[in-house]
Structures are given as structure tokens and as C-alpha cells.
Computed example of a mutant assay.
Amino acid sequence: MFLYIFLIFFGISVAAGMESGITGGKEAKLHSRPYMASLQNNGHHTCGGMLIKRDYVLTSAHCLNEFTVDLVVVLGAHNISTQENSQQKINVRKYIRHPLFEQNNYSHDIMLLKLKTKAKINKFVKVMPLPKKNGKTLANMKCSIAGWGIKNPKDDRASSVLREVTLKLQENSQCKKKWQEYFNSDRMICSVSDGKDAFCQGDSGSPLICNTKPQAIATFTFDGDCTNKKYPEVYVKIGYFLPWIKKMIGKKLVI
């Protein structure tokens, strides 16, 4: 079987099935997710991310690609099309991709961005604590994800405002059955679209939040149809990569 994966940042589509942006859902309450980061290339939103330390953002490894000129991390934003007083724009000092990430194997699709300066913590910008261990996520659990990705699969424009959607987790066995070699049950989880709500292009790297805790990072969905009900949307599990994250930035994740 040949699948098409739609990578969920702007500008790339690869054979195998991947992409990302919030389709359906609703506009997020103003500054209700102060950990969210907009990754921008040449002033254009490309991916989401999460502030996990004042000078580190967690995102997807595939957000760094041949089209990347110089990523800028925008924190404290709601409307990325305007210059909000709450926004902090910080350049990236270092890109730390997981060493096992490969373009045709997204089970290690995770990356740390070392910022050039530390973020200023306030009511608009806050660090999101990571899970303490690699716990289990249950099928049918409802989780949420937010981002500035496209609102309509037929429209390639990013959303100006942060949008959020609630999605239901799928059984890993079903994820494996549909995605076969593209899904790794140890390192990945997936959610199922109801045909209306989904993440879509531009939402790669955005965190999946379950019971107020970040559990995973958005990676891919079906090419050309973010709301495809047959093929689940896929994420890499943050908990699985905790040892690597701690090794890269130190055990003290919140300061």
C-alpha cells in the first residue's frame, strides 16, 4: 500500500501521508495558552511550538528544512498578523534535532530550539511543565491542540488568530493498522477526526494537551485531507523522549 503523508508545516508535502493547522474548532480565549509559540520563517508562520524553559522551545524536527532561512520564535501572541504589545520575538541560537530523525521516518520527529535570549515570563508568556514520566494515554480520551495553521484544507493561508480544537485519541492498534510502517506504537499516539475538526497545515510542533498536561507533538495527517476520518492524525509522545530532552537541556526543566 502506498500512502501520502502531509507534513504539517507550510511548504512541504512528501510521499507517505503528512500535514498540520486547526480545521474546525474555535478561536482560543485570549492568551489562554501562554506556552504557545509561533515559529516564523521570513516573517511567515510555519510551525507551532511550546515554551518548556525560558530559553528552550519544543517542536517538530521536520520544521527545520531546506526552506528555513532563519526561524524566529514569537511568544505571547494571539493575533500574529499584528504587532501586539504582548509579543516577544526571539531568534534561535541553536537547532537541536533528535539524532535519529529521518525524512522518511517520523517516529523521532522532535526538536529543541535554544533561544538567543531568555523569554520574559509574565501573564502572556509562561513555561509549560513537561510530564514527569512516560505515562499511558487512553483511547477515546479527549485532548486539545491549538495553532495558527490553516482553517480550511482548500485555503493555504495561516490563521491570524490562535485557534483550538478538541480531538479524541484513537487505539494504537488502529493507528498501526492504518499507517503501518509510518506509525511506531512506542513513540507515537494518534487521534481521529470526526470529519470536521482536525489539526492541519501549519500546526506541526504544536503540543497535544490531555488533562492539562502536554502529552505529544503534532507530526502528520493524511495528504490533502486533514479531516480524513479513515487515517488518524499522528503525534510523537513527549514522555518517550524525556531522557533525551533532559540530557540536552538539563534535568531542571522549569526556571
Rank of each mutant, 00 (worst) to 15 (best):
K247A: 14
I238E: 05
K213C: 02
P214A: 15
K229F: 07
K229I: 12
I249R: 01
G250C: 04
V234L: 10
K246N: 09
V192E: 07
D194Q: 08
T221E: 03
N184D: 15
Q215W: 11
S204G: 14
C210E: 06
T221N: 13
C200R: 01
V236M: 05
Y240E: 04
K252C: 11
N228R: 06
G224Q: 04
Y240P: 00
K246I: 06
M248Q: 15
A218W: 00
K196I: 11
Y240N: 03
C226E: 04
K252A: 13
I217Q: 02
K251H: 11
D197E: 13
F220Y: 15
I189G: 00
P214R: 05
C210K: 10
C210T: 04
K247F: 09
K213H: 12
D225A: 11
G224E: 02
L208K: 03
V192H: 04
C210Y: 09
F199G: 01
K213W: 04
G250M: 05
F222A: 11
I249E: 05
M248C: 13
Q215F: 10
D225Q: 13
A218Y: 04
C190Q: 04
K213V: 15
P214H: 07
L208F: 12
K213R: 12
K246P: 00
G195Q: 07
E233H: 04
V234T: 07
I245A: 05
